[in-house]
Design a protein around this nucleic acid. Structure first.
Length: 312
DNA sequence: AAGACGAAAGTGGTTGA
DNA sequence: TCAACAACTTTCGTCTT
């Protein structure tokens, strides 16, 4: 699986309300509409309304429909299917010949395999509908959703879902997929929508990280800034300033071990003051899902360590 | 009156013996 | 497995605009 975020930006016909430029891009990785001139995020949580793939003939259609026909959630045999007994006796209690025994052995083997197969596809059906629900509720673009589906399939193949809730693993897959695609969604934000609790989600995330070969980048404060800045209605200039502050902080190595959300909030606070676009600590804290105190502590930290003087 | 600030106590997660 | 620990939160009183 590839973890390199593909730079998928499409230029579209749209005029930026901030600077009037038509240099507007659609960043499908993040699901955002961005002005290429001033950096304003015009819209986020874009929804791809078209079908997720196109087919020009029936053969392609078959090849691309990777989940097969839509499965009904009901179990086709309702648990009433034939079972083959393990006893080597016929209905009258007589011993079965060696040749028949070998045949029976093969039949049992395939029957069990088919049961495992249907159990897995049933699991996948439930999981995918849960994934669909979760990602649409969190406004997650389809690329991250696809990645999440892939991660989920891997965990399913490794039998990691056994004894755990499907919902928990789905949420964990989605969380990791978001990190891979650099669309920050903190655990807590997912917990609100997911049918799990914080503890289980955290455990599942760690389990997948350990067992599956994926290496999502450590979430950076920079990834949070556009989202927070946009929800506060800040201009592209301020957002750039905030990103710049984080870059400086990174160079000085003072970002390690700190909550990226808090750092992002602090840099936005400082950027707001510098660019005369001030927001109160409370507003920023709310948008960044941290407390005022954290904003305060981080911003004090950043200001002293980067020698930024804040004008009163 | 709202916002900013800081101290103190509490919380959940990580680390190292 | 448990205690120490760092980062963050909650709460609350005080100062500033």
């Amino acid at each position: 699986m590839t973890t390199t975020p593909s730079k998928k930006e499409t230029k579209i016909l749209y005029r930026c309300p901030e600077c009037g430029s038509t240099n507007v891009f659609q960043d499908l990785n993040r699901g955002e509409l961005i002005c290429g001139t001033c950096g304003l995020i015009i819209d986020e949580k874009l929804i791809d309304k078209g079908p997720e793939w196109r087919a020009f003939n029936s053969e392609e259609n078959n090849n691309r429909a990777r989940t097969g026909s839509p499965l009904s959630l009901t179990i086709h045999d309702k648990g009433l299917s034939t079972t083959i007994d393990w006893k080597n006796q016929d209905a009258n209690g007589k011993e079965i010949s060696v040749r028949k025994r070998a045949e029976l052995y093969r039949m049992r083997k395939w029957q069990i395999r088919s049961i495992v197969y249907s159990a897995q596809s049933r699991n996948l059906t439930i999981a995918m509908s849960e994934l669909e629900r979760l990602s649409s509720q969190l406004g997650i673009p389809k690329e991250a959703k696809e990645t999440a589906a892939l991660i989920y399939r891997k965990t399913l193949n490794k039998r990691l879902v056994r004894g755990r809730s499907i919902e928990g693993i789905v949420a964990a897959s989605l969380y990791l997929a978001c990190r891979i695609h650099k669309i920050p969604r903190p655990l807590d934000e997912i917990v609100i929508q997911a049918r799990t609790n914080r503890k289980e989600l955290g455990q599942s995330v760690r389990l997948i990280l350990k067992e599956i070969d994926i290496h999502p980048p450590v979430p950076s404060a920079m990834d949070y800034i556009p989202k927070i800045g946009n929800s506060l209605g800040l201009s592209g200039k301020t957002i750039y300033t905030a990103i710049d502050i984080i870059k400086q902080a990174k160079q000085k190595g003072i970002t390690a071990g700190k909550d990226p959300g808090g750092l992002a909030a602090a840099s936005i606070y400082i950027a707001g003051i510098i660019q005369y676009e001030r927001r109160t600590q409370r507003e920023i804290a709310e948008a960044a899902h941290v407390t005022e105190v954290t904003v305060r502590n981080r911003y004090k930290d950043l200001a002293t360590k980067l020698n930024i003087t804040i004008k009163p």
